[in-house]
Amino acid sequence: MDEKFLNVVAESLEVDVDEISMATEYKNFEPWDSMAMMSLLMDIEEEFNVSIPIEKIGKVKNLQDLFNLLKD
């Protein structure tokens, strides 16, 4: 599932999957801006068939945080 997650993220952010890891930070990775965050949410919600509450999104600091939300 980790691998699938990173692939979905890479595709959504339009970057190579090698450029990202679970440690990739929202603040420090240029392609992941606020607009990309919205697209990303739409993509992972669809891909993993989940709905992530808006409260949780503000606390996302890196991809690991986002990934953890999928399991809640």
């Binding site: 607009m35 993509d43 669809e46 808006i54």
Partner: peptide, 18 residues
């Protein structure tokens, strides 16, 4: 529509909407 997208970024459309 997507309420979430609207409140997050004033973007009213869902993925289907886009």
């Amino acid at each position: 529509y997507s309420n979430k997208m609207w409140y997050m970024g004033s973007m009213p459309y869902s993925k289907n909407g886009i």
